[in-house]
Design a protein around this nucleic acid. Structure first.
Length: 552
RNA sequence: GCGCUCGUAGCUCAGCUGGAUAGAGCAACGGACUUCUAAUCCGUAGGUCGCAGGUUCGAAUCCUGCCGGGCGUACCA
């Protein structure tokens, strides 16, 4: 907030220098205003001297001096502006500017941090998209939480967000699922049979088979067609998946079934359109898509010689449907195993006349599981995975969300269930939540002691003067920018790190200074700060889907 | 082989659209509870930012090469 004001004042000075002929306008937009890393370098700092000196071939400090001279006349925002180091301009902001943040935050309340930068752009976030072959595992959990927090951030910044889950309940995987279910069904009935070699081995299949017996007895034992088994499995698994997601606070606006692309003729239509445009040809009895026309190394098969489409074709058709539904921005959250499909889909989208620049793919790295110190290759089929439900049981929703949001998407994560269980108490989510609980506690105590929460105009705000207090205000002032950046960069971890930092500053302050004392005016002033801070922490937790307990 | 991606403290990770002295948590060590919640705080220690070049006033950050991990590289999804 304040940074932008400083930047715009600096821009004015720069332009003034241009019109006076001191320097050219080449440097326009090249210099920055940033938060310095070290103490004593001001509240903000600009590299303008160094940048302009490079362009004009002049001494950076001299240029910085000229800027400072112009700035001095400009505004009461600054307490001091000085040249430092090799040619930086450091800005020291008047303390009162920081204090004025308090009434702003209090007035905006839950809206502080929200913004309209999204301009109501329609965004679809596609995530999870797991086929119903088993419970959600850790990897899905990461994706679910990543996608959901991105969606939340976009909503907070004025985007119109639509969450979609894309799934496929046809094909080989599902046939195997049906066969596995039938095999277990017969097993439970004591019938002789063989479990499919590549069948799904999890306990959940047995449970599903049992449910069939409960409902229908042995009426299905002579069914050769696996459809009924498949459908039962799908129904149960999907119910579990939605329950798991809901438990984590994740709700979808739509589940999109890949099969509808066939039923509604979109698959055939896409092939026709591509053929009309000359991007498709036949060879070796298969249908090929000329991805080489889009700079790829080789063409790709979209319909196998058996007549079945490869996964690329429905993926392309699906993306066309997304475009046709008039979204301005399409965000796909994929695991890194989908890297290879992305360029093909993009080529397809482009070939059909849509703009691939409207698609952003967030790829997240895998979560590897270690058990007894050894890495386990997770597989739904072999059922050697850890489910999201198990994790939630053990660590709770908040800790799990925090854990997954802490890391940026493209970092690999190692997950050790034993360690997670043991360490869940150390999860930094509690550090932030405890901060919130403490803030609430102060407000409660104040009420009990009869120290009233007065409006900002009625307190002596100059009493808010400790460096820790001003630093808290400075940190609070960046909150809207943090949210905005995290949203536009699709990087929820930035909010997490911000909250940890802010909570840390508060905990320090709490241990050093007392808010409620016999000094009533001072207590009242500090209480205003505490109230505003509580709002920021609460909003931060809310925005990324975490609870903000008032007591712990 | 090729493509994408990662490599920062003992461990887990921030920082990466170039800026001044590279940060946090955990683990280690030493301190602070008759005081608004000690799920907290304060301090100490810990680094060739994978390696080597290059670009420039300035590189953890950009470029090139190499080394090492992950994921791909199907008429599997």
């Amino acid at each position: 907030m304040i940074r932008l004001q400083v930047k715009s004042i600096l821009d004015d000075c720069f332009l003034q220098g241009v019109s006076e002929g001191i320097w050219s306008d080449t440097g326009k937009g090249r210099y920055t205003v940033e938060l310095p890393k070290h103490e004593g370098q001001g509240d903000f700092s600009s590299n303008i001297g160094l940048v302009l000196a490079g362009i004009e071939k002049k001494n950076p400090r001299e240029i910085a001096e000229k800027i400072v001279k112009k700035l001095a006349l400009k505004t009461e925002l600054f307490e001091k502006v000085e040249v430092a180091g090799p040619g930086f301009v450091n800005f020291f902001i008047n303390s009162d500017v920081w204090r004025q943040l308090i009434p702003v935050v209090v007035e905006k309340g839950t809206d502080f941090g929200r913004s309209a930068v999204g301009n109501n752009r329609k965004v679809m976030v596609e995530f999870v998209s797991a086929n119903p072959t088993g419970p959600l595992s850790i990897g899905h959990g990461r994706q679910a939480i990543l996608g959901d927090s991105i969606a939340r951030l976009l909503e907070t910044t004025g985007h119109e967000v639509f969450r979609e889950y894309y799934y496929n309940d046809a094909g080989r995987q599902m046939r195997v699922l049906g066969e596995s279910t039938r095999a277990r069904y017969l097993e439970l009935l004591g019938e002789k049979n063989e479990f499919p070699e590549d069948g799904y081995q999890g306990q959940y299949i047995i449970d599903i088979s049992q449910s069939l017996i409960d409902e229908k007895g042995d009426a299905l034992k002579d069914y050769r067609d696996v459809t009924v088994f498949k459908e039962q499995a799908e129904k149960h698994i999907f119910k579990d998946i939605s329950a798991t997601l809901k438990r984590m606070g994740i709700i979808f606006d739509n589940y999109f079934n890949e099969r509808s692309l066939y039923e509604d003729g979109h698959i055939d239509d896409v092939v026709c359109k591509l053929r009309d445009k000359g991007y498709v040809y036949e060879k070796d009895n298969a249908v090929w898509f000329k991805t080489t026309e889009f700079g790829h190394e080789q063409d790709r098969v979209i319909i196998k010689s058996s007549g079945e489409p490869t996964y690329r074709l429905p993926d392309i058709a699906y993306h066309r449907e997304k475009f046709r539904r008039d979204f301005d921005w399409l965000i796909d959250i994929f695991g890194s195993d989908h890297i290879a499909t992305v360029p093909d889909v993009m080529a397809g989208v482009e070939a059909l006349g849509y703009d691939p620049a409207k698609v952003t793919v967030v790829l997240h790295q895998f979560v590897t599981l270690t058990r007894d110190g050894k890495q386990v290759k997770m597989s739904t089929r072999k059922a050697n995975f850890v489910t999201v439900d198990e994790l939630v049981d053990v660590v709770g929703v908040d800790a799990l969300r925090f854990f997954f949001m802490m890391r940026k998407a493209d970092s690999q994560m190692e997950f050790d269930l034993d360690l997670a269980t043991r360490k869940s108490q150390e999860n930094p989510v509690y550090y932030v939540q405890y901060g919130h609980a403490r803030l609430c506690s102060i407000l409660r105590q104040a009420a009990e002691k009869g120290i009233s929460k007065r409006p900002f105009e009625n307190i002596d705000s100059s009493l808010i003067q400790e460096p820790e207090e001003l630093n808290l205000l400075k940190a609070m002032s960046t909150f809207p920018t943090v949210i905005e950046n995290a949203a536009l960069e699709l990087a929820p971890h930035k909010v997490i790190f911000y909250l940890i930092e802010l909570a840390g500053q508060f905990h320090s302050y709490y241990n050093k200074h007392k808010v409620l004392t016999d000094n009533v005016p001072l207590s009242e002033a500090r209480l205003c700060l505490i109230d505003a801070l509580r709002i920021v922490v609460k909003n931060g937790l809310d925005i990324i889907g975490l609870t903000a307990p008032e007591k712990m």
